[in-house]
Computed example of a mutant assay.
Amino acid sequence: MERNLTHIALFAALIAILGLVPKIDLAGGVPITAQSLGIMLCGTVLGAKRGALAVLLFLALVALGLPLLSGGRGGLGVFTGPSVGYLVGFPLAAFTAGWVVERTTLPLGIAATAGAVIGGIGVLYIFGIPGMALVLGKSLSEAAFLGMAFLPGDLIKSVLAGLITRALAQMRPGSVLSRA
């Protein structure tokens, strides 16, 4: 139990630390950040349940006003901005990424990359694009067009999540809880 809580807290901190990497703002007001890599890693390393809990802890801290999102954003106001759909999708993205890694027999690096693509891109876009459309007053197709600007970077982050997860498992067998 204590070990699980420690992992959840550490990965919530990892998401916050990845927010320190400078963001790139796109048209539409949703920034490209390294934080989605943290979301992917929560799932691929911790597994579905613990990964989602780490993300929920991170979002709770953001809601309390801690400036943990990229660019030093925090507070309840961020949940009314263009990135609200992505924020809502974060825990489900981590859960899905972890679920894919837990349920597949593919080699870990491939499974983690696939989980990151399915959860960290697919699920995240399912929530993010409608949220962006709603807040910006755009159609779903217009928001999807804006959202596709993230795809190249998100694909790179998915591959990185797979490589990092596999490397972590090689360095410390048993540390990748999604396969423990």
Rank of each mutant, 00 (worst) to 15 (best):
N4L: 05
L5A: 14
H7S: 12
H7C: 09
I8C: 09
L10M: 14
I15Q: 06
A16P: 02
A16I: 10
L20F: 09
V21H: 08
V21E: 04
V21I: 13
P22H: 13
K23H: 05
I24G: 12
L26C: 15
V30S: 11
P31T: 10
I32N: 13
T33I: 13
S36F: 05
G38F: 08
M40V: 11
C42N: 15
C42T: 02
G43A: 06
T44C: 14
V45W: 05
V45H: 10
G47T: 07
A48G: 15
G51D: 11
L53E: 09
V55E: 13
L56K: 05
L59I: 13
A63P: 01
A63R: 06
L64V: 06
P67V: 14
L68S: 02
L69R: 08
S70F: 00
G71P: 04
G72F: 02
G72M: 12
G75H: 05
L76H: 07
G77T: 12
V78R: 09
F79I: 11
S83A: 14
Y86P: 13
Y86S: 12
F90K: 13
L92D: 01
F95R: 11
T96E: 06
W99I: 05
V100K: 10
V100D: 12
E102H: 03
T105A: 14
L106D: 04
L106M: 11
L106N: 06
L106T: 01
L108M: 02
A112D: 11
A114P: 08
A116S: 14
A116I: 07
V123T: 11
L124F: 06
Y125P: 00
Y125F: 15
Y125M: 15
I126N: 04
I126Y: 03
I126A: 15
F127H: 03
F127P: 07
M132N: 00
M132A: 06
L134V: 09
L134Y: 12
L136N: 12
L136K: 10
G137K: 02
L140V: 05
A143R: 10
A143D: 06
F145G: 02
L146Q: 10
A149Y: 03
L151E: 03
P152A: 01
L155N: 04
I156W: 06
I156S: 10
S158Y: 02
G162N: 12
T165D: 06
R166M: 07
R166Y: 06
A167N: 02
L168T: 12
R172M: 00
P173E: 08
G174F: 03
S175K: 09
V176Q: 05
L177K: 09
S178E: 01
S178L: 11
S178T: 07
